[in-house]
Lab assay of single mutants.
Amino acid sequence: MEVRTIKVFTTVDNINLHTQVVDMSMTYGQQFGPTYLDGADVTKIKPHNSHEGKTFYVLPNDDTLRVEAFEYYHTTDPSFLGRYMSALNHTKKWKYPQVNGLTSIKWADNNCYLATALLTLQQIELKFNPPALQDAYYRARAGEAANFCALILAYCNKTVGELGDVRETMSYLFQHANLDSCKRVLNVVCKTCGQQQTTLKGVEAVMYMGTLSYEQFKKGVQIPCTCGKQATKYLVQQESPFVMMSAPPAQYELKHGTFTCASEYTGNYQCGHYKHITSKETLYCIDGALLTKSSEYKGPITDVFYKENSYTTTIK
């Protein structure tokens, strides 16, 4: 009895394709271990004539594949690729409408935090270190965002349907971005203890939790000093293409032309909904596939993004 075979390709990165001759009487799992086709788990399936010449994702289970996976995804987590594939199996079914010149995501599976993050990423200057993220990001900007969303979920250790947080998501993504040249110098002034300067680099240099107003941050924000008295913390120097200011959701007025974009969060910790506000020729609110415009805006804002380049204080 002759062994019926077909020729397929296996890959971990969709760049390096490895030619395989597979036995049609055995499952993919018996031949390769966990195997995925377009995100779908085909591990328990036997090869079919229609699979001839198709590319299958496999887990990096030998040295060659491990090197290829690390170079593309910059992670050695053995569960990463499987999590990416199972997320992709959902995100490829989502709709990605162009809204006001940006790629958004039609609401499904509690994905409003991903839509808000995706919209924000198209408006701030950011370059990702893992080629996987950078490639998928370019495709997302062009309207094909399924891979990018699935990668975000995998890097953030999230599953489809789980509630997510924009600030946490951005923080994970910033860790995989090139923020080497970003720098922030802060000064804390206390009447009792004097003053202390701190220099922050990388992710810490672009994120701040405690106030939404970048102007206020430049002037000074009140913080408790270690001595128990009130101290003032203010920005001395900022070198970065953008800054992200966050605070627990509270009524906040966004003035046209003073910011790049913002995240609105309605609801409580267990259950809520994100919308995205962007400042173009007027203010726009993007909620999944829905767009509304207004000249002014007041609502429960939790993150505001500002364009920056270089700032030095005039406070002496």
Rank of each mutant, 00 (worst) to 15 (best):
T159N: 12
P300I: 15
H18T: 08
T35N: 09
T10D: 06
E71N: 12
Y284Q: 09
T266S: 07
S263H: 14
A177M: 08
Q123W: 01
L151H: 01
T43F: 09
Y137S: 05
H273T: 01
K233V: 12
N89R: 11
S240A: 05
A262I: 06
A247E: 04
T91F: 02
L291D: 10
Y36E: 07
N49P: 13
Y284P: 03
V3M: 11
Y208I: 08
Q20S: 13
T313D: 15
G220S: 05
A132K: 11
G33N: 02
L126Q: 04
T266V: 09
C193H: 03
V243N: 00
P47K: 03
T91M: 02
R184V: 05
L283I: 15
P130D: 00
T232W: 09
Q216P: 08
D13P: 06
V99T: 08
S25H: 12
T312I: 11
D13W: 08
C261N: 01
K106N: 08
T64Y: 11
A115M: 02
T314G: 10
K275M: 09
P224H: 11
T198F: 15
E68V: 04
L59M: 13
E144A: 09
E68T: 06
Y265L: 01
G288W: 00
H176N: 06
A140P: 01
K293N: 13
C156A: 09
L17T: 11
R83L: 08
D23L: 12
V304E: 05
G161S: 04
K275A: 06
C285A: 07
A115I: 05
I15H: 15
I15L: 11
K158C: 00
M170P: 02
Y274T: 01
K54L: 14
E308G: 07
H276F: 13
T313P: 09
Q270M: 12
S295F: 07
T312F: 11
E168V: 15
S171A: 13
V185L: 04
C182L: 05
K158R: 01
P97M: 15
V22M: 09
C112A: 04
F259D: 02
P97R: 09
W94S: 06
N100P: 06
D62N: 12
K229I: 07
A154S: 08
L163K: 15
R83G: 03
K275T: 11
T5K: 14
F9Q: 12
A177Q: 08
T116L: 09
L88E: 05
T159L: 08
I223H: 10
L102S: 10
D135L: 09
A140I: 13
L212C: 09
T314Q: 15
D165I: 04
C193A: 00
L254G: 06
S104M: 00
T278R: 06
L200V: 12
L121M: 09
N268H: 11
V3E: 14
V221G: 00
P224W: 06
C225W: 02
Q237Y: 14
V189N: 10
Q134A: 11
P131F: 02
L17E: 08
C182R: 05
L37G: 07
L291C: 14
Q251P: 14
E239A: 09
M170E: 01
A140W: 06
K218W: 02
A87W: 10
F259A: 01
T211I: 06
N157Y: 12
D38P: 07
D77K: 07
Y274P: 00
G161A: 02
G29K: 09
G29H: 08
T282P: 04
P97F: 06
T282R: 09
I301R: 03
N110F: 06
T312V: 11
A142T: 14
G299E: 06
E168Q: 15
D62K: 06
Q237M: 11
V160Y: 02
V22S: 09
L291Y: 11
V185E: 07
Y265Q: 03
C193V: 03
Y297M: 06
Q123S: 08
S86V: 11
C156R: 01
N178C: 09
R83I: 06
K293R: 11
H273G: 00
H74Q: 07
F9C: 09
V160D: 03
T116S: 11
R66M: 13
H273Y: 00
N268G: 07
V206E: 01
S310N: 09
G143T: 04
V42W: 14
K293D: 01
A136M: 09
T314F: 12
R83A: 06
K183A: 01
T260R: 01
Y172Q: 11
L121Y: 03
R141Q: 13
N89V: 13
Q123G: 04
Q230I: 13
S181V: 06
S295T: 12
Y96A: 05
C271A: 10
P131Q: 00
G210E: 03
I6N: 02
D38L: 09
E253W: 12
A177V: 09
K46W: 15
A115H: 09
L65C: 04
C112T: 05
C112S: 05
R184L: 00
L173N: 02
V304S: 00
K218L: 04
N110P: 05
T75H: 05
G164D: 01
L118M: 08
A231Y: 04
Q30P: 06
K229F: 07
W107M: 06
V304T: 00
T43G: 13
Q31F: 14
F174C: 02
T199D: 04
L290G: 12
K158E: 04
Q122D: 05
L114I: 11
T120G: 06
Y28D: 08
Y269E: 15
Y57M: 11
T282H: 10
G288T: 11
D135A: 07
Y265M: 00
V221E: 04
C112I: 01
M207N: 00
T120A: 14
V185I: 13
E308T: 11
P78V: 09
M207H: 08
K316R: 15
T314S: 15
R139E: 13
V22T: 09
Q134T: 10
V67H: 14
L126S: 04
